[in-house]
């Protein structure tokens, strides 16, 4: 088709669209969704039994703050970088808190090695934890993918990867408030394992999910 005829076709299909909100506003929307999910879970499950002690534990405070900051900055950076005129270097924004988060997980593993308790590995707890991970990460994933649906035509791979990091960070922060997971193996599984799984899943399937969401919302 000639380019001029192609332009005419596009112009004739120009239905009104609403310009999307700025990334900062959309980040706040996503955090509100995360907050709502967390409040519902807290109402249902309550805080972990040793929360008072944990709030005096610097490692817990630093680790949870770092995972939360990683999540907030990752969400903001992927929403910014999904726009055509913004630099891809925005995607590096969560690296600093991510490094702190990973360092505290590693340090926690070393210091808690001796406190390994087989009781923490009970199947019932593990299944419940897994269900909670799903309950938190699913609405957060869906909401951030809906916000990023236009990115499917721009830079989907890295944007979805960082979106995965945002969901993983928020899920980990919520889990830290809800469950006692201070044995080494559980720490590894729920911090690194969950984060890695969510990020890998999004890296592999993120593009297809974005396409499906973009298609569904169009139709």
């Amino acid at each position: 088709m000639e380019t001029s005829a192609f332009i005419k076709t596009l112009a004739n299909a120009a239905e009104p669209v609403r310009a999307i909100q700025r990334p900062m506003v959309r980040t706040v929307y996503w955090l509100l969704i995360a907050g709502a999910v967390l409040i519902l879970l807290l109402a249902e499950h309550g805080l972990r039994s040793d929360i008072a002690n944990q709030l005096r534990n610097p490692l817990f405070l630093i680790g949870t703050t770092a995972s939360f900051l990683t999540s907030v900055l990752a969400a903001h950076s992927c929403l910014v970088a999904s726009l055509p005129d913004r630099s891809r270097f925005w995607l590096l924004l969560p690296l600093a808190p991510l490094a702190v988060w990973m360092a505290t997980v590693g340090y926690g593993c070393l210091t808690n090695w001796v406190s390994y308790d087989a009781g923490d590995l009970r199947m019932g707890t593990a299944v419940q934890c897994f269900a909670t991970v799903l309950l938190i990460s699913l609405p957060l994933s869906i909401s951030i993918f809906v916000m990023l649906r236009h990115a499917v035509r721009l830079r989907p791979t890295f944007v979805t990867l960082v979106a995965g990091l945002a969901v993983a960070g928020m899920t980990s922060s919520a889990m830290a408030l809800l469950y006692r997971l201070d044995a080494t193996i559980m720490n590894l599984i729920w911090n690194l394992g969950t984060a890695a799984l969510i990020v890998i899943f999004k890296a592999i399937f993120g593009r297809r999910v974005l396409k499906a969401i973009a298609g569904a919302l169009k139709g």
């Binding site: 332009i7 999307i20 726009l83 055509p84 005129d85 913004r86 035509r153 721009l154």
Partner: peptide, 24 residues
């Protein structure tokens, strides 16, 4: 042009147009 059409809602009127187009 097709991509511009598909993502035209991502243009922020308070920002310059040309870098947005060049990015696409």
């Amino acid at each position: 042009l097709l991509t511009l059409h598909e993502v035209r809602q991502t243009y922020d009127p308070s920002r310059p147009f040309k870098p947005w187009l060049a990015g696409i």
